[in-house]
């Protein structure tokens, strides 16, 4: 089922070359539990229900890398299943601003998904460390974006004149 881990597509490599020190390597694909395997066999390849066999403990620290988790909307290979699309779409910015924003999005997403995991697994020290790392990476990316393209948060350091109201609104596609 987890055919999409580390498939080494072009953009992933490009992305990791751009941010090599910040982008941890994805660990190898996590083996499905026996129950998941059985269920997925019953349901066929396009299994479109949750992997009930996932116990949240099997391999919690084997996550997708930041970019691959983000484009899937899921950092946890054990939990991932795909519908309709043969593989997740790449999110590729067409200019420096969009690329930097994707970096902010990806690190923020990774930290957030681990945050939800930690809400139900508060004693997982390794995951807390990973949360802290991604959270700091998101902050660094956000500062880099804001220094070039203006505020993402209203309480970011403001220049003159007031810049909050003339940076792009996220629902406007240019």
């Amino acid at each position: 089922m987890n055919n999409y881990v580390n498939m080494g597509n072009m953009f992933q490599n490009e992305f990791m070359m751009t941010y090599p020190e910040a982008m941890p390597q994805a660990k190898m694909s996590v083996q499905d539990s026996e129950l998941s395997k059985k269920l997925s066999k019953q349901a066929g390849d396009n299994m479109n229900f949750n992997k009930c066999g996932y116990d949240g403990k099997s391999n919690p620290n084997q996550l997708y890398d930041v970019y691959n988790g983000f484009i899937r909307g899921n950092m946890f290979p054990d939990l991932f299943n795909q519908y309709k699309l043969s593989r997740p779409y790449d999110v590729k910015g067409m200019n420096e601003q969009a690329e930097l924003l994707t970096k902010v999005d990806a690190y923020s997403f990774a930290a957030h998904d681990i945050n939800l995991y930690l809400d139900t697994h508060p004693n997982d020290r390794a995951m807390i460390d990973l949360y802290n790392q991604y959270s700091a990476d998101a902050w660094t990316a956000k500062n880099e974006y804001e220094s070039k393209f203006g505020p993402l948060f209203v309480n970011s350091n403001e220049g003159y004149p007031w810049t909050w109201n003339n940076t792009p609104w996220p629902w406007e596609n240019k």
Partner: peptide
């Protein structure tokens, strides 16, 4: 359209698990 829909669908799966 499929990109964001697929992302949102996947979030439902993670939330369900939590």
């Amino acid at each position: 359209i499929l990109g964001p829909l697929s992302f949102l669908r996947e979030r439902e799966i993670v939330h369900y698990q939590r």
